[in-house]
């Protein structure tokens, strides 16, 4: 299990390896098709502008999926995602990168499970946390 993180080795304050995403308008169209979310503010600029937006914006749920990617990549093939939460505080637009980041906030055991809580978020180029959230995973022990 080369890419496996173990509960024993996790410490509070530990950072999750970042996941950088470079969403494009093409990705938003792919996501619209794959998710079934065809709300036009995600691909029709005229429609977005009529809704007081400057540009088309990323689907909130796509940003949620980016955070899911961050956490599941870190927890490895034998980790289990138990909870994934985020708030869409700021809008993100295609053509600018977003970075998914996280930090371990709590390590504990409950009913025989080895659990870890993390704060997670998406950050834009200005360093603003547009999508803060949290997650809980179980990890294998050594």
């Amino acid at each position: 299990m080369a890419d496996q993180v173990f509960w024993d080795d996790v410490e509070e304050g530990m950072e999750l390896p970042e996941v950088v995403k470079n969403p494009t308008t093409q990705q938003l169209v792919k996501y619209a098709g794959a998710s079934g979310d065809y709300y036009q503010i995600h691909y029709d600029q005229g429609f977005a502008k009529n809704n007081d937006l400057d540009d088309v914006i990323l689907h909130g749920a796509l940003k949620n999926a980016f955070l899911g990617h961050l956490v599941t990549k870190w927890m490895g093939p034998h980790g289990d995602l138990k909870r994934l939460a985020c708030q869409y505080r700021g809008m993100d637009i295609p053509g600018t990168p977003v970075t998914a980041k996280g930090v371990v906030t709590k390590k504990y055991q409950e009913q025989g499970a080895n659990l870890v809580d993390c704060d997670i978020w998406l950050e834009n180029e200005k360093g603003e946390k547009t999508t803060p959230g949290s997650a809980t995973v179980t990890l294998p022990a050594r």
């Binding site: 909130g60 749920a61 949620n64 138990k82 909870r83 994934l84 939460a85 708030q87 869409y88």
Partner: peptide, 12 residues
């Protein structure tokens, strides 16, 4: 008429 998604919490 306008709708925004505020966030989501999943439990698996």
């Amino acid at each position: 008429t306008r709708l925004l998604d505020g966030g989501s919490e999943w439990e698996y």
